[in-house]
Amino acid sequence: MKIKVLYFARIKEAVNYSTEELDLPSEILTITALKNWLTLRGEVWANLFDGKQVVRAAINHNLVDDLAQIQANDEVAFFPPVTGG
């Protein structure tokens, strides 16, 4: 299924992407599975998702936890804990 993925702040700088369209294998159905799948891209991605830093996720503009289900055409975003205000 096709999804859109956005990256923000230090994560955007680490992976050098701000947005991309992905066509996921059929077994990638959750945020955890997506993180693990992206980890296969190489060291930068593996370091990002190795659990040493907090990476928050949102689906269609709502904060979600890693067990959240991904559906076709979703907009998924990865970003560090927020620091506004």
Binding site: F8, A9, R10, A58, L63, A77, F79, P80, P81, V82, T83, G84, G85
Partner: peptide
């Protein structure tokens, strides 16, 4: 707002930039 709204601050200090 401080914990839920998606804003991120980057500072420029005399020694460089940092999130």
């Amino acid at each position: 707002l401080k914990t839920q709204a998606p804003f991120w601050k980057k500072e420029i200090t005399p020694t460089g930039e940092r999130w």
